[in-house]
Computed example of a mutant assay.
Amino acid sequence: MSLSWSDEAPAVGEYIELRRITGMERRAPSAAAEGLRNSLHVVTVRERARLVGMGRLVGDRGCFAQVVDIAVDPEFRGQGLGTEILQRLIDWSKAELPASCHVNLIAEPGAFALYKKLGFEIRTGMELSVS
């Protein structure tokens, strides 16, 4: 298996498809295009031309950044791709964002161990969202 890594955003269709096969919430194509275009940084991994993993950083480039869209094709899980994607996002943020920039993420309970291993802390509080 030959994997290639890139900092290039995926095409909208393959982004939507990776989200679908990983059980993530659906995004409208126009919203996905806008989101991808406005990413601070993107990490993708491919087997040949096929998108098999990705992650993004979004934010204001100064005070706040958030890790989003960490997704690995189910056929490729268990190989450390999610950890490597997240590490590449962290490395980029340390090199490119101010040291005082707060980098956060919202994690599913089953993923806490991975994120803690890479330096994230679990914070108590309340997540609010508007739909």
Score class of each variant (00 low, 15 high):
residue 100 S to A: 09
residue 25 E to P: 07
residue 3 L to Y: 15
residue 24 M to T: 09
residue 73 D to M: 12
residue 78 G to S: 07
residue 15 Y to T: 04
residue 107 A to S: 15
residue 39 S to L: 09
residue 91 D to N: 10
residue 25 E to F: 11
residue 59 G to N: 02
residue 104 N to S: 12
residue 86 L to D: 00
residue 2 S to F: 14
residue 106 I to R: 05
residue 20 R to H: 12
residue 2 S to V: 15
residue 55 G to R: 00
residue 77 R to K: 11
residue 42 V to D: 09
residue 30 S to Y: 06
residue 61 R to D: 14
residue 122 I to H: 08
residue 52 V to R: 01
residue 73 D to A: 11
residue 61 R to E: 10
residue 92 W to Y: 13
residue 57 L to K: 08
residue 125 G to E: 14
residue 24 M to C: 14
residue 75 E to Y: 00
residue 128 L to G: 12
residue 92 W to S: 07
residue 34 E to C: 01
residue 98 P to G: 10
residue 47 E to D: 03
residue 41 H to R: 03
residue 42 V to Q: 05
residue 40 L to H: 00
residue 103 V to N: 00
residue 91 D to H: 11
residue 31 A to R: 11
residue 121 E to R: 01
residue 72 V to D: 03
residue 28 A to I: 08
residue 96 E to L: 05
residue 45 V to Y: 03
residue 101 C to E: 09
residue 108 E to N: 10
residue 114 L to N: 07
residue 18 L to Y: 13
residue 94 K to P: 02
residue 27 R to L: 12
residue 94 K to L: 14
residue 91 D to R: 08
residue 12 V to C: 09
residue 114 L to H: 06
residue 122 I to Q: 13
residue 101 C to G: 08
residue 42 V to C: 13
residue 73 D to C: 10
residue 1 M to Q: 01
residue 33 A to T: 10
residue 105 L to S: 02
residue 115 Y to W: 02
residue 93 S to K: 13
residue 55 G to C: 03
residue 10 P to D: 12
residue 41 H to I: 01
residue 72 V to I: 13
residue 25 E to R: 12
residue 55 G to W: 03
residue 43 V to M: 09
residue 71 A to Y: 10
residue 101 C to A: 14
residue 8 E to Y: 01
residue 104 N to M: 09
residue 5 W to E: 15
residue 91 D to A: 14
residue 76 F to E: 06
residue 89 L to K: 00
residue 111 A to V: 13
residue 76 F to M: 03
residue 6 S to R: 01
residue 19 R to G: 15
residue 73 D to S: 14
residue 130 V to S: 05
residue 120 F to N: 02
residue 33 A to K: 13
residue 40 L to K: 07
residue 123 R to F: 02
residue 25 E to H: 12
residue 110 G to T: 04
residue 93 S to H: 13
residue 4 S to F: 06
residue 67 V to M: 01
residue 6 S to Y: 03
residue 54 M to H: 00
residue 123 R to W: 02
residue 74 P to W: 11
residue 68 V to D: 00
residue 116 K to T: 15
residue 100 S to V: 03
residue 35 G to P: 05
residue 51 L to R: 04
residue 68 V to A: 04
residue 41 H to F: 10
residue 126 M to C: 06
residue 71 A to Q: 10
residue 74 P to V: 07
residue 91 D to G: 10
residue 4 S to E: 13
residue 96 E to A: 14
residue 9 A to V: 00
residue 109 P to K: 04
residue 71 A to H: 07
residue 5 W to D: 15
residue 34 E to A: 09
residue 81 L to H: 03
residue 116 K to G: 06
residue 77 R to Q: 15
residue 128 L to R: 07
residue 123 R to L: 08
residue 113 A to K: 02
residue 85 I to M: 10
residue 47 E to S: 15
residue 96 E to D: 10
residue 69 D to S: 15
residue 48 R to I: 06
residue 54 M to L: 10
residue 23 G to A: 11
